[in-house]
Amino acid sequence: MDLITSKNAEETRRIGAQFLARLRPGDIVALSGDLGAGKTHFVKGMADACGFAGEATSPTFTLLHEYAGSRSTLWHADLYRLDSPEDCLSTGIEEIWCGRDITVIEWPDRLGSLLPSDAWRVDITITGEHTRTISITPPLPKTTAL
């Protein structure tokens, strides 16, 4: 697990961009953190690193955004207002994480046990008015059959 300190929203965005470089096609990222922690800023950085020219925005109401960048495509899901794993699947998220694009999921706890076990875990903790601690946990290596 890596622990990174961010001094402000701009730095959180840069950390998101640097993080994307570690991902491979088809990777899933479970992104947690309280309201106002800076999850959208982190995703903005990820979208920047995909070569997406626009601004990533909050999908709380729209549920799922696609950022087709010049280098790769990022899918941004936000399950905040959903209340059951079944409700989450009604967004069509399964179809996306079965593909080769990268998916980042805000409020992944809403998926319960349906969250893929090979997801990266990113957790943003509010430590001060502007400061945040970002913990990044890579997926566990796949267990091999005995």
Partner: peptide
């Protein structure tokens, strides 16, 4: 357009933080 959250989202999330539910 908005660079991040929509205005309606600011209402709803503010209400949640203020303990008014969502």
């Amino acid at each position: 357009t908005t660079r991040d959250d929509a205005a309606g989202e600011a209402f709803d999330k503010g209400a949640k933080i203020l303990g008014l539910g969502y």
